[in-house]
Structures are given as C-alpha cells and as structure tokens.
Design a protein around this nucleic acid. Sequence first.
DNA 1: CGGTCCCTTCGGTGGGCGCCGAAGACTCGC
DNA 2: GCGAGTCTTCGGCGCCCACCGAAGGGACCG
Lengths: 239, 239
Amino acid sequence: MTTPAYSSELARLAALLADRTRAAFCLALLDGRAWTAGELAAYAQVAPSTASEHLTRLTDGGLLVERHQGRHRYVQLAGPRVAELLESLTAHLDPPAERPRGLRAVSASAALARGRTCYDHLAGRLGVTITDAMTGRGLLDQDGGFALTDAGRAWLTDRLGVEPATLSPGRRPQARACLDWTERRTHLAGTAGARLCDRLLEQHWIRRIGSSRAVRLTPQGATALHDLLGIDGAAADLM
Amino acid sequence: MTTPAYSSELARLAALLADRTRAAFCLALLDGRAWTAGELAAYAQVAPSTASEHLTRLTDGGLLVERHQGRHRYVQLAGPRVAELLESLTAHLDPPAERPRGLRAVSASAALARGRTCYDHLAGRLGVTITDAMTGRGLLDQDGGFALTDAGRAWLTDRLGVEPATLSPGRRPQARACLDWTERRTHLAGTAGARLCDRLLEQHWIRRIGSSRAVRLTPQGATALHDLLGIDGAAADLM
DNA sequence: CGGTCCCTTCGGTGGGCGCCGAAGACTCGC
DNA sequence: GCGAGTCTTCGGCGCCCACCGAAGGGACCG
C-alpha cells in the first residue's frame, strides 16, 4: 500500500547479514581495520572460494569497500554509517554466552574486555570509563539524550589538542552513544569519539596489542588520563 | 576467534528481516499500532497460511508480540527498541523510488508525507518542522549530538503539561534522533518524542486520518503550535 | 447447533543459495 | 621466467525455506 517496493529493499539489505559467515566477516571488520580475503576466510573457517563470493556480495551490497593491493584483496567497512548499523543490530542480540576455551582464548578475551577499538572509537572498559568520567565532569550530557556540552567541546580542543574543524566535517553527529557488547554499557562514538581515539593513539597514551583490535593504556597514558579526567588506570585494570 | 557464536546470533536476527513479506510486515507495524494477521496478509498479498507462519517466526524471534482477542490474532512491535532497530535499517536504504499509481495512492502518500506516527512519535513534515522549531528555540541541542536542553525539559513539563516522571522511566533516552525516510531528515524520538505525540493527540491538536498512521494538524493545533513554537501550520502544509 | 469467519497445521513443490574442489588469472620473489 | 601464493570463476551438490491449497480447530452469531 504505502511501501510496495521498500520492503524488498529492506529484505535485500537484511539478507546480506542473514548468513553466519557474512555476519562473522562484518563483526570482524567492526574493528575498523582492513582485512585480506584470506584472513577472513581463515577466521570464519570457510574455503577461500566461499569467502570470495561472500565478499563480492557484501561489496556489491554497499556494506564493504575493497582495495586491491598486489595479490591481496583488502576489504573494510564502507563507512561510519555501516558501523552504526552493525552496532544497532548487535545491541539487540542476547548477551554473549561465549565461553572462551583455553588459556590463549581467555587472555585474548580479557584483553578485548579491557579496551579495544570499535570502528574508529574506543570501547571496552577503557571506552566506558572515559565516557563515564567525561559525563561526571560535565563534558558530556547523558540526561537529555547524548551530546557533547560546550565545556566538552572546549576540553577536546584546548586540553586534548583536537582540531576544531575536524569535529563536524559532515552530517555525522559529534557525539553518539554506542552500545558495547561486552560491557552492555554505552560509550562515546561519533566524530568526537573518533578524534579522541586518534589523539590518544598519537600521544602514545594507548597502544595496540600486537596487530589486534585490543588496546591498553601506557604508563604515560595513565598519568595523562589521571590529570585530565581523574581516572585511575591501574585500579580500573586498563593497563 | 573472538566472536564464535555471536555471528550466528546476528545472522539469525537478520534472517528474520531477510524476506520481502516479513520486511513488509515490520514496516507496516512501524506505525506502532496492532494489526491482525489477516490485515497483514492482505497488505503483503500473501495467503493467510503464509502470513501465519511468518508471524510465528517474527514473534519467536522476539521482534513482535501477539495478543489473541476472540478469533483475531493481533500483533505489534515488541517495543521501542525494535522500532529503533527498524529505523536504523531503513535509514541505510536507498531513497524510495516508489511511484504511487492512481489518485488514491497519490493522496495517501501525500497525507503520509504531511505527518504520521513513527512507532510512538511524530514523523513526516510535521515531525521535522516541530523538531526544527524546538532546535531553533534552544529546546533541543543538535550541535553536540542530540539531546534535550534544560529549557527543553522545562518547556515540555510546564508549557505542554508532560508529567516529569514519564520522561525517563527506564534506560530509554529522553531524546533520540530518528531518520525519516520521506524527508531524509531527523526528527525527535525517545521518551520526549513519545510524550510530545501523546500530548498533541490528547489535546486534539493533531488527529489521525481515518484509521491510518497519517495525522494532520487541527485548527486549534495550528493556533497552539504557533503560540508555542512559532510554527505556521498552513504555510508548512500540515493541516 | 449449524454456518461463517479467522486463523493454524500439514504436505508438497520450487527456487534460491551456501558450500566445496578444481581450474584458471594474476602478482610476487627468486 | 618459473614456482609459490592469493584470489576468482565455475559446476555441482544439498539444504533450507517461502509459498500455496486443503483440512482442521476455535470463536462468534443467528
């Protein structure tokens, strides 16, 4: 009646994620980095040919972008909007009943719970702790919705050294709530969340663990976050 | 590796919407009202038996709730979170290329573009106009994200007569941006958006057209919105 | 209590698609 | 330029599932 063709479009989009393997690809890519086709195939435990077909479908569907480099096919989420879409979907899932097996898996999942990148911003305990501290200091308003306050904008530019112009490049909101699937708590996303993460990496206040999406606080980062937000990095187990 | 079982959950959720008929059901139910199984079957042009199976799947999947009343099976979206999920998905679709055929279809789609309910709040030109006016008057902050200001909270309770206690019942945000698929603009959702819509209906400032989701401004509503927000209802074609 | 209406259950059918292995295109390093 | 490595294309297999019609179960009405 009102939406004759629209439902097909919605079904087409949902169908892209309605497969276990493709869903696994997208969740892996949610760390914001570029993966090769082979890495994803190994990750999801399917044959390279299968992975290739899935990646073609996902890029044709607009969820991924690809970049050919030598003999590798690198894929990445197509943008912040796709990351948001995946977040909204995962936020509606049941809490993860996963039981990591073995020491390596346990320590890997502990590292991810401590801190990690979620597309272009910070998640895990680190992301939640920073978000809470910012809220407590009046830099973030979580009462009326989710927005950066004037004080918050000033803090980002003056104390953290974020370029004001990079805070609102397009239609993307400055501050957005992103729901974490390990913490089940919201943390800061949007351009402010992305710039915050950038600066912390640039200053070497946080560091990636190996080549994974997990991050940890450095000693100088702990000092800085204590000065800036009153966060005790050791007590919160962020190091 | 990190999300072994999680991808299956995501795929399972997406699969619920990965069918043209089920997607049509959900989009229809996005108006927030309860539909009978037969109405939905006719709407999506499938046999009653087919509709019944789809509705069972959607309720089992947690997207819908049902209520048996006499020989009718009424279904409804399971809650605001499901409505949000559908909004995020539709926001990622291509703009609707639908071409309404015939006079009735054209006038119906014009009525929906003028104003309608989107789950429990207002959308269409009416929703966008109110949101813009509130933003212009400092009741809503769209710079730092999307949040109700202190002035906005006071305006809702003192001028509009919203019960303060009903503004933040649970974990649902007071203000949330909802992207409209006809206007491609954001409008106010969340508890504030829901209470606003409630009050406008209670005061008979807006009225449903027939039994559809379309709404229009009444003459006394035009006067009230002019006083409260400086909106010219006739000029904006909201009546 | 029989007729009507709404919905559900159950077979059966057809199409779509996720998977793999084999073979081929392409890049890189020696 | 020759192997090794990465990815893609293709054919084939098997499974899942959306659909319908027919039959059955309740609810309402006369």
